[in-house]
Amino acid sequence: MVPRKHAKMVELEREDPMVDDEAMTDDEAMLGDDDSDNEDIESEDDSGEELQAEPSRKAIYNKERLLEKLEDIAWPENVDWMHKLTIDHDQGEKVDVNDDLNRELAFYTQALDGTRRAFEKLQSSKVRFLRPADYYAEMVKTDSHMHRIKGRLLSEKKKIEEAEERKKARESKKRAKEVQAEKMKERAKEKKESIESVKKWRKQRQQGGFAKGKDDGPDLNFEGDEGFKQSKKKRPGVAPGDRSGGLAKRSKQGKNHRSKDSKFGHGGRKGMKKQNTAETTNDFRGFNQRGESQNKKRKTF
């Protein structure tokens, strides 16, 4: 074999017959040739200076002998297609190797197109070529392997669904926040408006000079200390344990907050919370009024 030299490399047309005479004539030892080729490669390692993009100049390309060999081994030309089952497919434009998706798509279309044409041929030649539904035979992949594949597919599907759900929840949470913000804004606005209206009313009243007496307008005596004093003794309708002093029930706050207020905050003794009052004794909300018949888990002795 001619040792390759890579010191200088020139861009060559691939179609060029890169054959030199010595390559044509050499008749070498048939066997063990691959090993010498390996040595050749190793020697190249040392020399270095190799680029992948450029073709090596000394590469042998013996077209005549190749075609001769092809003729040697080829099946007779008019052999029945049923023996070969080959289909050629025109790929169209060049496929980019590094674009995985496109490349696989090209292979898939080649297979699909080839199969369609082959099936048309098979159909026209009236052979039985499709597997009947009740034909069971050994497959290339075992059942247990297919089971594993199925399990993987299912788990993948589940994963995707879960991710979708999480996404949805996140979205709805975001929206809920927005709605809440809107509400708060509205509330603030309302409050502002009401204060404004009270101010307005007061001004009007002042301009009127209090002449018309105390009867028009609400009876609000903010001035004296009396008005702000809470009467601690008389709290009608307030449970003794209610630390909010009954305010919790009236306020606009949320239910949760109200109940918490009545439990922990806003004055009053805590110890009273645990005592029954007339109201709580008459409150039957906590009981199951239909008796125990519904509760199956509960054991009756």
């Binding site: 074999m1 060559l12 691939r14 890169m18 390559a23 050499d26 008749d27 070498e28 030892a29 048939m30 066997l31 063990g32 040739d33 691959d34 992948q52 073709p55 090596s56 100049r57 590469a59 042998i60 390309y61 013996n62 002998r65 190749l66 060999k69």
Partner: peptide, 11 residues
């Protein structure tokens, strides 16, 4: 498994 080289990949 051997014999004269008819083709060599230049790349």
């Amino acid at each position: 498994f051997g014999g004269p080289v008819l083709y060599e990949n230049p790349f």
